[in-house]
Amino acid sequence: MTDAQPVIFVGGLGRSGTTLLERLLGEFPGAVPLGEVVHLWARGVHADEPCGCGETFSRCPFWGKVGDLAFGRWKASEADRLLRLRARVDRTRHVPFLAFGRVRRVAELDEYVSAYASVYAAAAEVADGDWMIDSSKHASLAYCLAVAEATRARLRVVHVVRDPRAVAASWRSDVRRPEDGRPMARWAPGRTAVHWLVQNLAFELLRRRGVPVIRVRYEDLLGRPAETLRELAAELRVARARDALLFLDDQEALLGVAHTVSGNPMRFVVGRVRFSAPRAALPFVHRLLVTALTWPLLLRYGYRLAPRPEALG
């Protein structure tokens, strides 16, 4: 991989619109959306879950070629090794040490990140792409990529935020995984609020470390998608992206097939998608709790303490 092929890391708490943003960015010329690469080892190599193209991971021609180029082939033993390394270096509790330059287990961190660098480089070659998109979300992985020599020079982070009351409502909803029909995780509003605060604070600290971090609000992406994407592409300085918006207008987007290894159910959607937020009710007492726990960043990101009901859709 050369310096002309940046890695765009899309981060933020789940249910904040990271998959939507990746799918939209993935329609730009030269973009190679990969999904949540952090889950490649467990959900792809081990569980053989479907790629965004609909084929299982082991039968997807794109990922087959990536594995051959990056590692000779996908191996369960290699996946086990990466999962063990992840448990040691890629954890939210390590973020404060990484944020203040106190890197622990440097050799293991470099070994862990080198696998991601190999995946990115192989995907760029297989797809003949100009820039990779990894929507792994987790701030801890963003820090690992920012610290390790293999990726830090080409890393650019897009930090996606959404009103925490809407995020909490989404985490309370019953959503089924298209991969196997099982319910996705559900969190109580208080837990969601704490995770929202921790993840977003981590990305704020990452920006203070000098890492290129661009914030995008989910509500802006839905309300003015073309303008938001045009501004984001200009800030990211990605090749050939600034005027490539023929696939969308302010009402809907036309999405093609994407070889995304893991993520929100939207990664399987192909065709026209309208820009409308799913609505889920959050009882008043829960809205009050989430607001009380998150209000400093909530205000920083331009949200109201007492939002209009339609703003929480």
Rank of each mutant, 00 (worst) to 15 (best):
H159C: 07
D250R: 15
Y143L: 03
L83G: 07
R186A: 13
D68W: 08
A233S: 09
A168D: 14
I214A: 02
R81H: 15
A277W: 09
E227K: 12
R15G: 08
L255Y: 05
V273M: 12
L232V: 13
D163L: 01
W41Q: 10
R176L: 10
V38D: 11
S114R: 11
R165F: 08
L289P: 04
V213R: 00
V238P: 04
L25C: 05
A311W: 06
V10C: 09
H46R: 14
K75F: 06
R209S: 04
S58V: 04
L282F: 13
R15T: 03
L297I: 03
S135V: 01
V211S: 04
G210T: 09
V119F: 11
R191M: 10
A42V: 09
M266W: 05
L24D: 02
L221H: 01
V10T: 07
V216N: 05
A188S: 12
V257N: 06
R191W: 07
A150V: 11
S118K: 02
D3W: 03
S135C: 05
S170A: 13
D250F: 05
L229E: 11
G210F: 08
L25M: 06
R287L: 09
L141Q: 07
R43F: 05
R176F: 12
V38F: 08
V119K: 14
G190S: 09
G223Q: 13
L197Y: 02
E55V: 01
E22T: 10
V175G: 01
C60L: 07
F57H: 00
P61Q: 04
L109E: 07
R162M: 14
A107S: 13
D110C: 06
V290T: 04
A146Q: 02
P307N: 07
R215P: 06
V147N: 01
F9N: 13
R15L: 13
W295Q: 08
P212I: 14
S118T: 03
D128A: 12
K65S: 15
R59G: 02
K65H: 11
A142N: 00
W171T: 00
V216M: 06
G256D: 13
A107R: 15
F100E: 10
A148E: 04
H94L: 15
V211Y: 02
R162V: 08
A79S: 07
V126F: 02
N200Q: 12
